[in-house]
Structure formats: C-alpha cells, structure tokens
Design a protein around this nucleic acid. Structure first.
Length: 923
RNA sequence: GGGCCUAUAGCUCAGAUGGUUAGAGCGUACGACUGAUAAUCGUAAGGUCGGUAGUUCGAUCCUACCUAGGCCCA
C-alpha cells in the first residue's frame, strides 16, 4: 500500500521561487488596477491623519541608490502608520527650477549664451524637467512605493510658482528682505555671475607681491626702540588688483608675530613662523626687536598704501602659515572670507569694478583699467611709492570660467537678502528647533549650530530658470520697490499664466500707472534676478497646506542628513519667518550610501551600484529588504556580498511562508480554529513567543528602527519556526488524521503566525506579503494586504511562566541534540528518529519537563524517550544536572510515520506500520 | 581648519549605570535527511569590541589624542 498518499503533506500553490523581476511588475499592475492609493485613503476616511511631507528630489537624471533609500524609508513609514490605523496621504513632489537643469539647457541649445533669450531657456528647462519627473516617477513606483503619483506637487507648476511669490510677499511683509552687496564669482569675459558649479580650477600665473601697510596707531608700548621708526605690517597677495578695495588686514589671534628691523631702520611686522621664508626675499640683514600674539595687534590702524583710507587690523581663524606673511589683505568686496569678516566688523563691502572687469572711474590712478592688466600698473605704483617689498610670479590653481576658460574674479554685486535678525528670525527658529523631535537626536545640535551661526540668507541668483524676485527699480531715483500688494497681484497673474510672463512683459504691464513712492517717477525696470531654489522647496509646506489640505506643521519630514543645511533648513526659516513656527513636528534623517569599505560612491572610484541594476538582477524587494535591514541612521553600506546575504535571508523568509501556507492547506479558521485553552503547552509556548515578537516589532516600528523589525522577524523564522516549531510539528501534521484536535490546534497556531508575520512584514516586503495574502485562507480578506490593519493579538497569548519553562526546555533540547550529534558521529544513528534517548535529570529540571511531558518525544524529534531521576548517562550536558544515553530505538521503523515502534508488524493486514498509523489509515 | 556623526566576528545587527567564558542570524566547514528538496535539520570553527594613553581595584563601554570613513561648512 502506498502509505505516503495517506499523509497530510503540505500543499500550496505559493511558489518557492519568487521570480521577483518578473512578478513585481505584475503586482504593480494589480495595485494600479485596484487604485490602491485612493482605496487606502477611502479605507481610512475620517481617521487620524499622519502627514509625511515628501521632500522634492531634483528633476534631473535617473534615480540613484540614495533616492531609493529615501523613498523606501518613507514608504515603510507611511505603510506602517496606515497599518496602525492612520489616514496616510502621501503626495510626492519634484524640485524643478535651478542651475543644473539650466546648464543642461545651455549645453543642449548650444548657441552662444548671449544669443538665447531667457524665455527660450525657460521653455527648454520646463520640457527637460517634465521629462525627468515622469522618468523618476516611474522609477519610484517600480520600488513599490505607494503614493498619489497622479497628483504630485511640482515646483514649476503655475500655482506652485504663484505660491512661491505669495510666500515671498510674506517675507516682504515681515520686513525681512533687503538689498546689499555680496561677492560672487564673476566672469569678466562672459559678463556674468557664475555659480560654484560653473567654476573649474586650473593653473594660472599671477603676480605675488609683498606690500607695506604703515601702522598709524601708536605702538610704542610694544617696545621702546620702535619710537620714531616707520613700522609697517606686511601683507602678501596674488591679486594686486584687489588692493584698491583693501579695507582691513587679518592676523591669527593665536600666532606669534615679530617686529623686525631692517638695515634702513624700517620695522616690519609678520608672523614669526614665516620669518625665515620672508627673509629669503629681503636683500638686507634684519634683527628682531620684539614679538607679540596676533590678538594684541587687533584694532591697529594702518595707512592704505595708495588710497586715502585706513585699513584696520582684525583677527581671524582662517589665517594660515603656509604662505605669505600671516597678515592677510582683506577686500570684503572681492573674497568670500574677506566678505564674512567684513560683515562681522561692519566694514564696507567695496568693489569698484564693473561687469566687464574695469575699475570704476573714481578709482585713484587705475580708473577705467581692466583688473588683470591693472596688476602691473599697481605694482609699478607701489614701487614708486616705496610700498613694495618684493614682487614675484607664481603659478597656482585658480578659478576659471568653464564656458570661456578665462580666469574669473570675485566681485561684490547687489543681492537680495533675508535678514536673520531684523525680524528675530534666528531667535524664533532656534526656539522652534527645540519643539521638534529630531530622529536621531543629534540632528537637533546639527541644525541648531547651523542656524545659530549662519549669515543672512542670500535669496537672489543671476539666472534664468526660476521664479523671479518681484521687485521694480525706479530709474529716476534708483529706488527698489518691494510692494506686497504689487507682488500679490503678480502672483495671481502667475497662477494663470505661469512665471514666464514676467520675462515676456515689461515693467509697465505689471505696474500700470504706478508711481514711485519716493520720487513719483513712472519709469521702472523689472528685477531680473530669480529666487534661490531653496526658497522654492522651502515654502512647499504652504503649498501642500493650501492645495492638499496638509496640516501645518506636518507630522514628519524624512530626508538625508545633508538636508539639515538644505530643505529642513530653508523650510524652517520660511515657516518661522511668515508663521512663527516650525513646519514639522518631527524630522527623521538617514545616512548616505557607501561601499563595502565605507567609502562614498563615485564614478571615479568605480564603486557605484545603481538601483536599476539591483532591480533587474534581484528585484525591488531585495532593495527594500536592504533598506530595512541596515541601520540607516549611520552610513548605509552596500556591496555584492551584502546583497547576496539578503537574497539568502529573503529566501528563508519566503520558504517559511510557503511551508506555513502548505500546512494550512486544509485549514478553515471558521470551522477548525481551536480555542486557546485546548492548545498544548508547545502550541501555547509558540504563541507566547509570537506575542512577544509582535510587541517588539511594533515598538521597533514606532521608533523607526526598521532593522530591528527585519532582524527580529528573520530570527523568529529561522529559530522559533523553522528549526523548532515547524520541525517538531511535522509529525502531528503529516501523520495524524486531518481533523485530529491536536493537529487542528497546531494549525491554529500556524494560522496566527502566518497572519501576524505577513502583516508585520508588509510595510517592508510589500510585494511578497501581498502574494502571501493571496494564498492565505481568511474570511473578509481585503483586496490587498496593503489595505489591512495590523492584527491585535489577545493579551493572554503572553505567558511569563510558559516563557520561562519553554526557555529551559529548549536548553535541554540543545543538550539532547548535542548528544544525538555525538551518536551520529559514532555511527550509532543517522536521523534523530533512529534514536531512543534516556534522559537523566535532576529535580530542578523535573518541573520544567513535566509540563511538556506528553510532547517530549515530538519536541526532541525522537522515536522513544525515557526520563530517569537516578543514575548518569554517557553524554554529559552543558546544563547542570543533565546527562544522556543514546540507543537505537526499539522496534521497527513505521513505513508511514517513520517512527520506530514495537507495534510495527502487529497487524498482518498492515505489517509495516505502527498502531498509531494503523488507527488513522483504517479510520 | 570648524560643526555633527560612525568604527563590536567574512556580512548585517544586539549588548552592558563600567564587573566573571562579548551575543544572534547569515555566510563558511563538517555531518544528517531525502515527506519544506535549486529545500530542511544538527554540530563546529570565527572577535586583544579601530589604535594609543589616561581615569578606575577593574574599560569594549568614561576622558583625551590618533587613525580610517561619512554629511555639512570653510
């Protein structure tokens, strides 16, 4: 007789092989057909809201691995909150304006930039951004991210542009916007401002000059021998043309500075550590008079070498000792550090250079000259005036324009700023920071320090692809008009026509018969600068509020840790300025993706791994597991090995599901569910474990510790299920008659486990859990697992006594397994069912064992077991009070259940099976 | 150079107000099974907890410095 056919072996159509790369697109189609996002919203209509505000990625290029981390984390958070019963709208967004796209436009249009109108560029940019919004949208959806992909927010949408302008009006209303000079990179041959990204470094030969700045202040207190002598601070520079704009000299407060006397009785002040180098260029012998710390030089006034102004000595930490004299020439109009130092000390930002690089007429000696050719003239003049110590030539790395390859200059231009302090913006922002929950908590310190130390926000850019700053310039009195009513009027226009209209029409179109409030003039020109793109995305909260009904503040922003300087920062400022509060209640940050060695990904290192490759090789599910298994708060590593390990983990989880679904093939929870009281100790022990797992996992989700979620569940699958419970269960599952209560009891437990695990994992393994759900026999099932809630397990599943005894029992089991392995080595047995075990135990373990006594043979997966309280076995367990003897099992092996039993052969009509099987088979 | 952060087995993660042999899973090796089978089970080997110095009776956990790396500035 074929006894195998009389067994209840697991049956399921759930395939072992996932075939993710092919099946994922099918499942995405299913979700799309279900209109899953809107279904989810309907499902939770009227429930508590959880607003995760998507930070807009830049609509340029395909998505990379960092995007995947970000969007998958958001998706997990959103799906988790949904599972906890929240209504979870998720509106994806894109950032569309800005330099990178504009540069693409210039590159593609190809013509000389001067011949292309702003409107042409803007048209190209719009098309370009639109194209990548679509591409990225598809790529994000492919990751299994559920959101309102049909209604995203796009910063170049007309109504979004209008929103930007309205928020700008709010800034103006608050009185925070002002105009001031600030140095920017400037190409004097292209006649344009350059962004940092447009500057490339290349070798350039510059003059290198040492210049005297005679000290005017009384410094006799440093040394008596200084009396009556001409004392000069010596500066070194490679840009003599910036000397007319010199307004200060910087020294390092902690460095030592020496006063040296030359043979001509002149005294020079320079940094002590650079003295040796300096004396090499001096022909004459020198002697040191005295020395002092830079700190003590602070405040000294010097005479400008040829202008009729003073130059004040300041201290600055950026002064170094690698070249020069340790005394740095400061021209706030022509250098970044110079500018910032000047701001701190209220020094004029003077940049007497026009757009073509010519000195203003007003500049003494050099008016009208081009700056680079003026270098030579300036050196000549210095020499003539006796202010030059030495002049050499130096080849160094210098910024060049990437378009025309000419050297660029740093030049102060009028810019628009948002003040950090005039309206207490800094103060409000800092106090709001402490009301926000920063995850991880150090995010608070990071952004706090940034806000605390940052200069005013420069919001203007001399560019085409963006939203214009709505201001007008009165030609007759040079006044700049910022009028909130006018700005709001323009916003209304933008809402209908888009911001292009600003560039299509002249000022009078917007102004009508507006008169300059200062001089009554009627001749205006439009401001041509556009807003910093951080302004665009920074005001997204207000757009989401008005268009999608988002709360303000929203529940969460979730981005990479670079956004403390970026979006978190600009959003905080925008919200605090206009609404006096932070735009978010919590901010979660993740780290950056790095390779196996912890190095960042870069083309030059050749260690880039793309999400597209992972998806086509393994499937998006593996990418999702990867995101969930790593601790994203730090750098997130990825490598081929990591991916392969994850594929292994995935298989294990999948197989566990497959097996459980197979076990449940003939289980109907309506008819066959066994009540808790009727379960065996083993069954209860596993439900207790399940309950604890559920609690732990839910807690981990709550703390956004997804790696704990995944690791815990994986561990549960491997240990509690595969190697313990499911292995033990085989005997009763296969052998007993289908309706045997003991069998149904265990199926009940497997049913609870399958349901719980599928739901718990579904925010992460959405594809696979949905597939499990389809194969799972449950009443009132929703169309997709994504529409379900977490299930609440009954409290009585948790049982501390059982937890304790079961843990002890497992320790005994380990000892038995070690003994069996020892017997296996000695060729006494192969399978554990070949064995009969005599277990010698002490009294302390007696109580533990007694609870499980009925099931002990099965729990240890043996044919026979005997417990003895006296004597000692051959094998000594690690647990104290345990020893074990292993023998060949008594009787013969039952052909049906494979357990050795003395009853095999008793019945001549079934001579090869045991009594237990005989009873089942003959009904 | 500054702000913030990280460094525990080949991989991913645990861990302890500082206190006896630092844990798990994966992977690896060896073995078992062939009724979870491109599966499953068992056993075992892997770590001077990045380095140095200090505080302490005692440090992987605290402090300082160093090294390597990440993000943001300069």
């Amino acid at each position: 007789m074929d006894y195998k056919s009389t067994l209840n072996l697991p049956v399921t159509s759930f395939p072992m092989k996932a075939n993710l790369t092919q099946n994922e697109p099918e499942r995405l189609k299913k979700w799309k057909k279900l209109d899953i996002y809107n279904k989810m919203r309907e499902e939770r209509k009227g429930k508590r809201l959880f607003h995760l505000h998507d930070g807009p990625p830049y609509a340029n290029g395909n998505i990379h691995i960092g995007h995947s981390v970000n969007k998958i984390l958001k998706d997990i958070v959103v799906k988790y909150f949904f599972k906890e019963g929240y209504d979870t709208p998720y509106i994806p967004g894109w950032d569309c304006h800005g330099l990178p796209i504009e540069l693409q436009a210039e590159k593609s249009i190809g013509k000389n930039k001067k011949e292309v109108t702003k409107l042409e560029i803007r048209k190209f940019c719009r098309e370009y951004a639109k194209k990548y919004v679509k591409i990225q949208s598809d790529e994000f959806e492919r990751l299994g991210v559920i959101g309102d992909w049909d209604n995203p927010y796009i910063t170049m949408a007309y109504d979004y542009q209008a929103n930007i302008v309205r928020e700008f009006a709010n800034f103006v209303k608050e009185g925070a916007v002002y105009r001031s000079k600030k140095p920017v990179y400037w190409c004097i041959s292209c006649n344009t401002a350059l962004a940092e990204a447009e500057v490339e470094y290349d070798d350039h030969t510059s003059p290198s000059v040492y210049v005297k700045f005679p000290v005017k202040s009384d410094i006799s207190n440093f040394s008596n021998s200084l009396k009556g002598k001409e004392v000069s601070i010596i500066i070194w520079t490679t840009t003599p043309w910036t000397l007319p704009a010199n307004r200060a000299i910087a020294v390092h407060p902690d460095y030592d500075y020496v006063f040296i006397e030359t043979s001509t009785k002149e005294v020079f002040i320079i940094a002590k550590d650079l003295l040796e180098k300096f004396t090499e260029i001096l022909p004459e012998k020198i002697k040191i008079i005295t020395e002092t710390k830079g700190e003590n030089l602070k405040g000294l006034l010097c005479q400008h070498p040829f202008e009729d102004v003073d130059s004040i000595v300041l201290t600055a930490d950026f002064v170094t000792l690698d070249t020069g004299t340790g005394c740095v020439h400061i021209a706030p109009g022509h250098g970044q550090e110079d500018y910032e130092l000047g701001l701190k000390h209220n020094i004029e930002v003077y940049a007497p250079v026009d757009q073509e690089g010519k000195f203003h007429k007003s500049v003494k000696y050099f008016g009208g000259m081009k700056v680079f050719s003026a270098n030579e003239e300036i050196i000549k003049k210095l020499k003539e005036l006796g202010k030059l110590i030495a002049s050499q030539s130096i080849t160094h790395s210098y910024p060049h324009c990437w378009r025309c390859k000419e050297p660029v200059i740093f030049r102060a231009e009028e810019q628009w700023f948002v003040s950090m302090d005039k309206t207490s913006l800094r103060k409000i922002a800092l106090s709001e920071i402490d009301k926000v929950k920063w995850i991880p908590s150090w995010g608070r310190d990071r952004i706090y320090n940034m806000i605390e130390g940052r200069p005013d926000w420069c919001i203007s850019r001399q560019r085409s692809w963006g939203v214009p700053i709505i201001a007008f310039h009165c030609k007759s009195c040079d006044e700049y008009i910022l009028d909130t009513k006018l700005i709001e009027k323009v916003a209304d226009l933008f809402e209908k026509e888009g911001a292009d209209i600003w560039f299509e029409k002249t000022a009078d179109f917007f102004l009508g018969d507006y008169k300059c409030p200062k001089c009554g003039g009627k001749d205006f020109e439009k401001e041509e600068d556009i807003l910093d793109v951080w302004f665009d995305s920074g005001v997204s909260f207000s757009y989401l509020k008005s268009k999608y009904g988002y709360e303000h503040p929203v529940d969460m922003y979730l981005e990479g840790s670079d956004q403390h300087r970026g979006w978190f920062h600009s959003s905080l400022l925008a919200s605090c300025l206009a609404y006096k509060r932070a735009p978010y209640k919590s901010v979660l940050t993740h780290g950056f993706v790095v390779d196996a060695e912890g190095r960042k990904m870069s083309k030059s290192l050749g260690n880039v791994i793309s999400p597209q490759d992972i998806i086509s090789k393994y499937g998006a599910e593996i990418l999702r597991i990867w995101v969930a298994s790593e601790d994203y708060r730090e750098d997130i590593r990825i490598s081929q090995e990591i991916l392969e390990r994850l594929v292994d983990s995935y298989r294990r989880v999948r197989n566990t599901f497959k097996y459980m679904l197979g076990v449940l093939a003939d289980f109907d929870s309506n008819k066959n569910y066994i009540s808790y009281d009727e379960l065996s100790y083993l069954d209860k022990a596993v439900l207790n474990r399940l309950y604890r797992l559920d609690k732990k996992v839910r807690k981990a989700y709550q703390n956004y510790e997804f790696h704990t979620v995944f690791h815990s569940i994986h561990n549960f699958c491997v240990k509690d299920l595969s190697s313990i419970y499911l292995d033990i269960l085989k005997d009763r599952m296969y052998v007993l008659s289908p309706d045997d209560k003991k069998r149904r009891a265990s199926q009940t437990v497997v049913f609870e486990i399958t349901k719980t695990l599928a739901l718990l994992l579904s925010p992460i393994l959405s594809f696979t859990c949905d597939e499990v759900w389809e194969h799972f026999n449950l009443n009132n099932k929703k169309d997709s697992i994504l529409l379900e809630c977490f299930c609440e397990l009954p409290k009585f599943f948790e049982n501390d006594d059982i937890e304790k005894t079961f843990n002890s029992l497992l320790l005994v089991r380990e000892d038995v397994q070690k003994a069996l392995e020892d017997a296996r080595r000695r060729k006494i047995i192969g399978h554990s069912l070949d064995a009969k075990v005599i277990l010698y135990i002490s009294d302390e373990i007696r109580d533990v064992i007694s609870q499980y006594f009925e099931e002990l043979r099965e729990i240890f997966i043996l044919s026979q077991i005997e417990i003895k309280f006296d004597g000692k076995g051959y094998y000594k367990g690690e647990l104290s009070g345990i020893s074990i003897d292993i023998f060949n099992a008594d009787g013969k092996k039952c052909e049906r259940c494979w357990v050795f039993d003395t009853t095999v052969g008793e019945d001549s009509s079934h001579p090869t099976i045991c009594k237990r099987c005989r009873d089942v088979v003959s009904g």
